[in-house]
Design a protein around this nucleic acid. Structure first.
Length: 473
DNA sequence: TGCCTCTTAGA
DNA sequence: CTAAGAGGC
């Protein structure tokens, strides 16, 4: 007699029906499937914007499951205890989930797996978040890659399996276990900025992500190479938000990019290489989990970073009033939309870690607070890359000039004018939204004079380079 | 996925 | 005077 006991399908950052290997396996087993999302110790650690955005994704995904005759069971508590309770309540014999690679998730998942396995439950993680498992990519010497380009070359010609189609139905259990109500979790509670303002810029869910991918591949990917560098225009895919919550699979993106490349759209190669940057970040994080917490190159521990969040320059940077237009526009864009253009991310990171000589962790934590596309691997790698403390990092002496970058990448000032209201006769509506989104105690008004630079490019560059030159490492 | 300064060739 | 390349940070 075939096993008819339910399968618990534990969803985390994989909120989709399409190209979901664990879901596909569960659906084709013919057994009852109980999808569950747990507000657990890892979710507890999420900061304001990511937690809020995750809540939107979870709510949407519950509706998706309802559309195929299933449900999303919501429970709160430590993951292991919640799963054990659900096993007891439902008679489930199996727990499957999509594998995660950040240190907090790995700790949790290893404990869940070993404990449940010890209790006779089949507990297994199934790939689905990445194109290439981190341990399958090795240098000739047998180590992991520390430099992007050789990593990219090593994986470029690999076969990537085709995508899986979404199941049209999912067998329900004889009886559904109890579920919490999403609203009771108040996942937006820490979103004490204009969440209703940010809401206008988010793109929640699997269908929205697929529509976005199709439009990007059809209209924008050919010119991605050049257009991606212009923050005043919408030349990027904007899919990071969906990728981070698994609302679209990286495999679907990869195949769309490769098809576009075959169709003779040259920018597609660069875009696929950006997907491989994401892979590389997870590769590094898996092999060196301290990427999220410590200087990857330990000699940087001796560098005199400012680590005090209360420093006036740190506040000015966070609040978008450094007096450097490119920096302030970018910080405001992030506050209003939950996203920041990638070119701008490099510029604000260079300014914080070099001109202001502040530790990259300050920046990493603020991004984690504000970004709806927050990804633990990409965020940590990006900051260490910018600061110069990471593997394959930009050298510390490579200091972006945030003034001349405007002439290169924002010639018509479309970007800074979109996000900075002060001094404009007829400010862009988005520039005004910033003042509705920020807390009152920041005391900022569109009628203020735009501030003088707190640290000019020339002074900041000179100080940073002098400090670097005199370093004792 | 730098920026700056210096040098030199050529208009 | 400008453009382009080299080399240092």
């Amino acid at each position: 007699m075939p096993d008819d006991r339910p399968i618990l399908l534990w969803f985390r950052r994989d909120l989709r029906l399409s190209d979901h290997p664990a879901l596909d396996r569960a659906a084709s087993s013919g057994r009852p499937v109980i999808p569950v999302f747990i507000h657990d110790e890892v979710v507890e650690g999420y900061k304001a914007a990511p937690k809020w955005r995750l809540g939107l994704g979870v709510g949407h995904f519950a509706d998706r499951l309802a559309g195929i005759g299933s449900r999303l069971i919501l429970r709160r508590g430590e993951a292991l205890g919640v799963l054990q309770q659900l096993i007891e309540d439902t008679g489930a014999a199996t727990v499957w989930w999509t594998r995660a690679y950040d240190p907090a998730s790995i700790r949790r998942d290893e404990e869940v797996k070993s404990t449940l396995t010890g209790q006779g439950i089949e507990a297994a993680s199934i790939p689905g978040h990445l194109l290439f498992e981190p341990w399958t990519v090795e240098t000739k010497q047998g180590g992991f890659y520390k430099v992007y380009t050789p990593y990219m070359r090593a994986v470029w010609d690999r076969d990537v399996a085709p995508t899986l189609t979404a199941p049209s139905e999912l067998r329900a259990p004889a009886q559904w276990p109890d579920s919490d109500t999403l609203d009771d979790w108040r996942m937006g509670a820490a979103m004490d900025r204009g969440a209703d303002i940010v809401r206008a810029f988010v793109n929640v869910g699997e269908e929205a992500a697929q529509t976005r991918l199709a439009g990007f591949a059809r209209n924008d990917i050919a010119d991605y190479d050049d257009a991606r560098d212009i923050p005043g225009q919408d030349g990027t895919s904007n899919l990071s938000e969906n990728l981070t919550y698994g609302e679209i699979s990286v495999r679907a993106c990869y195949h769309a990019g490769m098809r576009a490349l075959d169709d003779g759209k040259p920018g597609a190669r660069t875009w696929v290489q950006e997907l491989i940057w994401r892979e590389f970040a997870y590769h590094l994080l898996f092999h060196t989990p301290r990427l999220v917490s410590d200087n990857w190159r330990e000699d940087w521990d001796a560098f005199p970073w400012n680590e005090d969040e209360r420093l006036a320059e740190v506040k000015a940077w966070k609040q978008g009033r450094t007096g450097i237009r490119f920096v302030d526009a970018a910080m405001r864009e992030m506050y209003v939309t939950g996203r920041m253009h990638n070119r701008a991310r490099m510029i604000v990171a260079s300014y914080l870690t070099k001109h202001l000589m502040c530790h990259w962790k300050i920046g990493m934590h603020w991004f984690e607070e504000c970004l709806i596309d927050w990804d633990p691997a990409s965020n940590a790698m990006g900051w260490q890359w910018s600061a110069g403390s990471g593997p394959d990092a930009t050298p510390y002496f490579r200091v972006f000039n945030p003034v001349s970058q405007l002439d290169k990448f924002d010639k018509d000032r479309a970007y800074v004018n979109r996000w900075i209201a002060e001094g404009q006769d007829d400010p862009h509506p988005d520039a005004l939204k910033y003042f509705d989104a920020i807390p009152r105690h920041w005391h900022m008004s569109p009628d203020d004079d735009y501030p003088e630079p707190i640290v000019s490019h020339e002074d900041g560059r000179e100080r940073a380079l002098a400090t670097y030159k005199n370093r004792d490492f």
